[in-house]
């Protein structure tokens, strides 16, 4: 793996900056107002969802709109197991439950490509939501459940940990043999299958891995919700937002999704209470404009500018692609 250590060496400045930012973020709860912690927690939560989305959909080009399903499974895990299990175990259970669900959805959707995959995953969220809703009302005779509350600072640290794990995973996966297989699927799936790559396996496993992280995030952040029901837990916006945030930030490297998530969740924080419609309008408009004029997102733009300024010759800006 000389290849790997070389890439690591080349990226030392980036790694140094990341570690510094991480240290700062870790110190935040010690010196800032509780509100800042909540704000950052929300940003980190969207960063985690967006990174998870990009982990699978970025390289493979399959647009998954099932994020809300895995997030919801995480939330329900917290609601059911939060009282009986310690936080780390409960969070892991949320991740594993999502992982299993993703294995099932992934195995079923293998034959679907392009937008058929997207609308199938979208429908899976609605199906789960509706069935759960019906089940709660007619079988359990209740609607929704309370969730155990856990201190914001704790949740903040757990989500921060998830984000770091995700960034490290994405970074190393991308440079591994497995990561190459993933991007070859996005590039030309037929060719990938015919040169010996088990595309089925790679797709399903990556989908499940990405969902594992989404489940962890759901189980962790659910503890700040007080009360949940199927419509809160399986809100389709949790499918749309990460997708848009990733596209806006760009999926060329690990920072793109984080940037996208940070910008939009910050905007959301400041707009959603006072001008809720303005937020959604901006969100939709930015998405349209990004798809039209920034096909590689903010990261792609930065890369282009950098190449222009430095006249760099290895322009490896990867482009967003769809099967």
């Amino acid at each position: 793996m000389t290849n790997l250590s070389m890439t690591v060496k080349k990226n030392i400045p980036y790694i140094a900056i990341s570690v510094l930012i991480l240290a700062l973020l870790a110190a935040v709860p010690f010196f800032s107002k509780p509100y800042t912690v909540v704000l950052l927690k929300n940003i980190l939560m969207f960063a985690a969802l967006t990174l998870s989305w990009a982990l699978f959909s970025g390289p493979t080009g399959y647009i998954s709109l099932a994020t809300a399903a895995f997030y919801g499974v995480g939330i329900y895990t917290a609601a059911y197991l939060g009282k009986v299990l310690p936080l780390p175990v409960m969070v892991l259970c949320g991740g594993l439950a999502s992982f299993l669900l993703a294995l099932i959805i992934g195995a079923i959707t293998l034959r679907l490509r392009g937008i058929y995959f997207a609308i199938f995953t979208l429908s899976s969220v609605e199906l789960i939501k509706q069935v759960l809703h019906w089940f709660e009302i007619t079988v359990l005779g209740t609607r929704g459940r309370p969730v155990v509350k856990i201190s914001n600072t704790t949740v903040y640290y757990v989500v921060l940990l998830i984000v770091v794990l995700l960034m490290v995973t994405t970074y190393f996966l991308k440079r591994s043999r497995y990561g190459l297989a993933m991007s070859s699927i996005g590039s030309c799936e037929d060719a990938a299958a015919h040169i010996g790559i088990n595309v089925t396996w790679v797709k399903v496993l990556t989908f499940a891995l990405s969902s594992f992280f989404i489940g962890l995030t759901g189980a962790t952040t659910a503890t700040g919700l007080i009360y949940i029901d199927s419509h809160i837990a399986f809100d389709l916006n949790y499918s749309f937002f990460p997708t848009l945030m990733a596209i806006f930030g760009g999926i060329g490297n690990v920072f793109g999704p984080v940037i996208g998530a940070a910008v939009f969740s910050y905007l959301r924080e400041i707009l959603i209470t006072r001008f809720p419609y303005a937020y959604m309008i901006i969100f939709g408009a930015v998405m349209i404009l990004t798809i039209l004029y920034l096909p590689n997102g903010i990261i792609g733009l930065v890369q282009t500018i950098k190449d222009k300024v430095l006249g760099g010759k290895d322009a490896t800006a990867s482009s967003r692609k769809v099967n």
């Binding site: 647009i63 937008i115 749309f240 848009l244 937020y279 959604m280 309008i281 998405m287 349209i288």
Partner: peptide, 16 residues
């Protein structure tokens, strides 16, 4: 793929 995503953007704008 992109036109579907763009239609999502449109959905948000019109709905809001």
């Amino acid at each position: 793929g992109n036109s579907m995503l763009m239609a999502f953007g449109l959905l948000f704008v019109i709905q809001s």
